[in-house]
Design a protein around this nucleic acid. Sequence first.
DNA 1: GCACTTGTTGTACGAACGTCCAACAAGACA
DNA 2: TGTCTTGTTGGACGTTCGTACAACAAGTGC
Lengths: 174, 174
Amino acid sequence: MLAREGAAGASVRAIAAEAGVSPGLVGHYFEGVDALVAATYAHVGAQVDAALDAALEGAGDDPRARLEAYLTASFAPSIARGELLATWVAFWSLTASRHDIARQHDEQYARFRSRLEALLGECGVAAGRRRAQAIALTALVDGLWLELCLSPAVLSPADVARIVREHAGLTIRG
Amino acid sequence: MLAREGAAGASVRAIAAEAGVSPGLVGHYFEGVDALVAATYAHVGAQVDAALDAALEGAGDDPRARLEAYLTASFAPSIARGELLATWVAFWSLTASRHDIARQHDEQYARFRSRLEALLGECGVAAGRRRAQAIALTALVDGLWLELCLSPAVLSPADVARIVREHAGLTIRG
DNA sequence: GCACTTGTTGTACGAACGTCCAACAAGACA
DNA sequence: TGTCTTGTTGGACGTTCGTACAACAAGTGC
């Protein structure tokens, strides 16, 4: 519902109707609609983490290949769906007023950046430079995510993966 | 109101109360709350454009300096305010269901990217490579914007400007 | 002074919201 | 079979939403 109707359309009634249950059932399983939204965020975040881990799992041993696999996994069809990106945007819009959502976001990003720093270390990047590079690559991936979601006509997933791979190379060499 | 309360809190009544006028006046000047939101987007977008143009104006003649000025202007105090970033996130969350907002976003980004391509051309980047590099730098700026807004504790505006400058250099040389 | 446009108010209305709760369905255990 | 827990329903309640509208203030041209 968040993806299809935006944050405004994700009401208890609409969610219950979509799920084929009564509105009251939402209140039975979640302590209010806020808790449902937070749980949804956690669920989607875990799905993304799992997909990125799986990409790393199947990337072999070459450090550079592992880094590229982790970065480009964010643009795999299962992750780069406009549906999922719209969901994240809806979450971002909630961080201003919902501190628990903001905290979940911080944790999600800290996890991604931390992994990235480790992968950069495997690629021989000096310890003192890993953090800044991880921040930059995370921002690049997020920005490309955004443009894929908001302006799909402008660039293709393949373009995006190529750009990320290229910049990862520049970053490591630079 | 979008920045402080999120999209959910920007109701006609709240906006009117904030402005010190009656709720009915909003309907008098705007054809419904949707038109007000679209007008706000246009207003904020124009402010950002003006600030970026001003940065370009005062950057002198050196192509590289002009590029860096344009890119880092997005992180100037007047633009990188958490308030403004939260407003943009609220707009992004509306693009899923509001086609006019989505169109306004496309135009805003096309403008930014087009300027960037011209500046990259001034820096000697080959015509065939400008578009991809402009997309990458736009994504980098957006991603860093996002992190500044959502996790201000993680990185400072100065860090962000340095990262962008560094990547612009890598991009041009690479 | 008087009609007339313009700006603004406050309220009324119907719809949708989140939450709550009495009631019903149905399997579990004695 | 009878009670008890669990799952689920559907509607009631009070609130807030966007919008519409009659009414009031205030300038403007004649």
